[in-house]
Design a protein around this nucleic acid. Sequence first.
DNA 1: TAGACGTGGGT
DNA 2: TACCCAAGTCT
Length: 377
Amino acid sequence: MPSRLTPTTGARSSASDTTPAFAPMPEFSARLIAWQRQHGRHDLPWQNTRDPYRIWLSEIMLQQTQVSTVIPYYAKFLARFPDVAALAAAPSDDVMALWAGLGYYTRARNLHRCAQVVVEQHGGAFPASVDQLAELPGIGRSTAAAIASFAFGARATILDGNVKRVLARVFGVEGFPGEKKVENAMWTLAESLLPSNASNAELSGYTQGLMDLGATLCVRGKPHCSRCPFAPDCVANVTGRQRELPTARPKKTVPTRRTWMLLLRDGNAVMLERRPPSGIWGGLWSLPEAADEASLAERARAFGGDGEVSALASFSHVFTHFKLDIEPRLAEFDRGVGALAALNDADTAWVALSDLDSFGVPAPVRKLLASLHGSLL
DNA sequence: TAGACGTGGGT
DNA sequence: TACCCAAGTCT
């Protein structure tokens, strides 16, 4: 029986609800499972295991982050924290230091908290249900489904960027998927596509297939439709609208902020300051900042310097939602290495440039310090 | 609910 | 170069 792939507009009960309902494709899951078995990815570092800890760790790292970026971090974490108990027992600063450079640092704080909750409230074993998983810090609806599916063979759908792209194209879902209304429609569609009578292994393969199809064939730029199992039925392929689906995010001009950073140096050591727990780079160690040149000089004096600062090359760092112009200023300090440690407190640390790896430092700040380290050698 | 929240890779 | 955005969650 050929399936209907066009939107059945106006099929909803409410007349004011203009969201099109999409007819399910009965053989969608079977086709996807078969494709995944033969053409999907089977050798990623977090595959070929049912260990919820390893699966959970990978899923958190993979949130908004590409596979190639995650791989080295995943290896580092697993080597240092082989199980959830080891992670739960670690000092927060160690977790942040290991996460530094991966971005979205709330994930690291939630990762640590989640490990502690699993140990203290679940006896060290991750819960098997989607609902219980979704109650844990840092685990939302999609990640809960991924963990439950991979670790326990649960019947639950993910809805990540891959799935949104696949659904938008195959079923012709219009509208920016970041918009709540569109996302809700996609959740409903994704739920309707889940296989009804599948084994645990098939359900894991189905979930992996959704990700693999989006990541390897149904890619953003130029999808490889000739190899896709859904090509004959895909709305985007049939109508040549691969470039228009999914609907792009509305353009917005990103504002620019400016900050002055104090590079207080004493010999081979620099002073780091702990950032507040929330906001950009929350909980990381960075350079002391000020909103203008004069305030920075004032801070340098407060730390015991003579107020003389020299300009280093300015640079900018682009975030998703704003651009940050950074004005680094160098101030020399001369107390001698032995006296520096006595100046440290919970939020201040004099650190040897060679020891930066043991602190969680934002990527652009790390680069700035690395260039200084290089120039001192 | 829309905005905050990083970084690096692809085009 | 500049722009887009990736295995999303939280508030």
